[in-house]
Nucleic acid binder design. Sequence first.
DNA 1: GTCGTTTTGTCAACCGGTTGCCATAAATTG
DNA 2: CAATTTATGGCAACCGGTTGACAAAACGAC
Lengths: 353, 353
Amino acid sequence: MTEPKTPDTAPPAGSVRKHGRDGKSNATIYDIAKMAGVNASTVSRALSKPGRVSSKTQKLIEDAAARLNYQVNPFARALPTGKTNTFGLIVADITNPTFFDIIRGAETTATGRDYTLVLAESAESPETELTAARRLMATVDGLILASPRMDDDNIRALAQDKPVVVINREVAGVPCVVPDVNKGISEAVRSLAANGHTRIAYVAGPPQSWMSERRWEGVQAACEWSRLEAVRLESGKPTVDGGRQTARDVRASGATAVLTYNDLIAIGLMQELQAAGMVVPDQISIVGFDDIFGADFTTPPLTTVRSPLGECGEAAATRLLDLLHGSGEPAGTLSVETELVLRGSSGRILPAK
Amino acid sequence: MTEPKTPDTAPPAGSVRKHGRDGKSNATIYDIAKMAGVNASTVSRALSKPGRVSSKTQKLIEDAAARLNYQVNPFARALPTGKTNTFGLIVADITNPTFFDIIRGAETTATGRDYTLVLAESAESPETELTAARRLMATVDGLILASPRMDDDNIRALAQDKPVVVINREVAGVPCVVPDVNKGISEAVRSLAANGHTRIAYVAGPPQSWMSERRWEGVQAACEWSRLEAVRLESGKPTVDGGRQTARDVRASGATAVLTYNDLIAIGLMQELQAAGMVVPDQISIVGFDDIFGADFTTPPLTTVRSPLGECGEAAATRLLDLLHGSGEPAGTLSVETELVLRGSSGRILPAK
DNA sequence: GTCGTTTTGTCAACCGGTTGCCATAAATTG
DNA sequence: CAATTTATGGCAACCGGTTGACAAAACGAC
């Protein structure tokens, strides 16, 4: 309008310039202020505090901002306020599909409420986890810990600094989102009982896993109720390989039905048993946990106790955001329901031909 | 040392305080400066520019920092420098397991080099993708786009602003990491030819997918070389469901072997064909792409052309980091090899009994 | 002991917003 | 129409680092 300031013509085709100077999207509130003929602080107010400036200056400023295609500098904003519109999510293992849905649920919720998700993984190590958490703490407004491996005290310590929500574990004094395994487990056990099974094995997960214990307790309780025998077996890693390695113990246990800590173990176990010539479910029933991606790829497809992981992610993110905005309970556990997904890997034992 | 400043005793057990003031980890370089008896700028230099201060002041400062358990405020640092030690990764679909390995590869590399990964998803929409990219641009040092859906010009525009690396697609003028499909495809086609197949179908992916076209070209080329017939079919979504829906077309095509745009489609297709009573691979061979998590859960396990996705993620992150540190090529494509993973879903056609 | 060079540390400006406080203009009230 | 309240915008300090310019100190050579 004033000068014919060579409007960014198309960049010299074929050659991409080095970054920076010419891709400048860096208009500041001062530029806007100058253009709108007001003070920078007025611009700041117009852009953040709604209603603090008159509607005509508001419009003036908005127009100027649009013309300059202004974007706030998040760091400049974060510096005085400490708010970053960002939260962190730490998962134990990025390759574990259990977390995929959690990640997605959290990401969706974040984006929907104008927050950005920062992801980190702990590689199943309590130390790495704590390090990652500390690191993230500096740059986020809050933190979600999915199946954390560090101990309760550390979690509480973090929670004292900034809002923290825990998924898949209960920590006193910290808001948690936990699938309530009882419904799903009792459905599973009843189904097994109805199919004539009398001795059921539970293949446990990693010793640090809070959830593994809950599941074991649930299995015991349900078995007692249905007057079945429950035996506990240990697994190595909660992976497909870990599952394969428990096949021997499972056969030795004399159980005709197995519940495993998670679907990965169940799948590995099933593969190994089938490789040894056993027929599922005719000779042994297998029930997993979580209903992860791929649980229905197997033959037979896996019966499993589904945890609504996506919901957990969403719920945790929602709770966190509520906390950040002053609403919401500061602590307490939110339960989400689990349910049995009956597929082909469980059923009635056929008498050996 | 000076005052008996009630050293943070354990917080009143059982009651978790509100966040903020007491969890103060906020020592600043000014605090350190005071404690060490130097100027704040000296502290800043001691902490960032190695060798700029004498070793004794260095030690003095480091000790003070340790005693105060100081942590830099990333925002304060980012403000003047513009560097955030953070980069973004945008994937088309978080629930698509293809990306899991990419995410993990990138995350691992990031953490290993002291960077933080910020994750966003585009839900397969070019607009959402662009929005997310713009949003992230403000807070990250660079961006990785995995299988981007937006068009080349938009990508180049982003790349002009800050370093961008693209995975699974080639964009002129922008650094890319792309699996070279030829080796894997020719292995696959040769294997099919050796098993007597003469007519091969390719089930394509989404029209915007650059990679789907490359794969189709690869299939055509390999078929020509082996003197086989290649027919192209379209799929709806590149998902298990999308795969199921192509079953009808596949049967109608008269092909005895199918390559699909990705494993998800292959799995869906296989499920549907099996449900209709066909035996894989006795009546039809199925070959997927990518070798995603779960590809070996099926019965028979899926033969597939593996793209080293984890490597792609790593390589992209490494390139980006190199770019950020001034080394590395500003553009050009890095190829990674693909290979055939021969499993049970492909083989010789058995004559109808 | 003097002069030039190199180290080392200090000063002060700056990055780009936010916000408490105050002055002024506008609106309301008596 | 004066007095008072309220709405609006400006000033300036501040968040916590970084960095160029410069001064003081240390060092070496002559």
